[in-house]
């Protein structure tokens, strides 16, 4: 209709194959949300807030500045790859226990960043944690309870 070219893609998201058709510039964020991965949040769409953070091959990054086509062949994890209602991930448990959230909008991205951090560095200092989450903005808290929660998991205190 509009002369744009679209490309068929096939991604592996949380271990499952997801197919779709996207434009060259379509972001992974828009693709995932169009496929009902609504746990990936759109806060700014310019890489400035971190709400859309996912793991790509284990590294946390913003999906809004990731090309959907380029994400093919890589391991993509959203928040849904963590725990389930019956069995929360220890990080999710800790976020609830420490009230490390209020409105919950930054939480999916924050948890993915925390997950990547602890996978790479199981015993971070508080400063390491603050550095790791510095691309994930939270407007409700002052980050303290978030750092508390991640630290508790790293110390096995959950």
């Amino acid at each position: 209709m509009d002369g744009k070219e679209y490309y068929n893609i096939k991604l592996i998201v949380n271990g499952k194959e997801v197919k779709g058709s996207v434009a060259a510039e379509t972001s992974l964020l828009d693709f995932l949300r169009s496929k009902n991965y609504i746990e990936v949040k759109k806060g700014c769409d310019k890489g400035d807030c971190g709400a859309c953070t996912v793991l790509i091959d284990g590294k946390a990054t913003v999906s809004c500045l990731t090309s959907a086509i380029q994400a093919q062949g890589r391991k993509i994890q959203t928040l849904k790859s963590l725990g389930s209602w019956d069995k929360l991930d220890p990080l999710q448990e800790a976020f609830v226990k420490h009230e490390a959230l209020q409105c919950g909008f930054c939480t999916p991205g924050m948890l993915m960043t925390a997950k990547a951090l602890l996978d790479e560095n199981p015993h971070p200092t508080r400063d390491d944690i603050k550095e790791a989450i510095s691309g994930n903005l939270c407007r409700c808290t002052g980050y303290k309870k978030i750092v508390d929660a991640i630290e508790a998991v790293s110390k096995g205190e959950n």
Binding site: L88, Q92, G104
Partner: peptide, 9 residues
């Protein structure tokens, strides 16, 4: 609601 918030529901 916190449980659903950490699960992205």
């Amino acid at each position: 609601d916190e449980r659903d918030k950490v699960l992205g529901n």
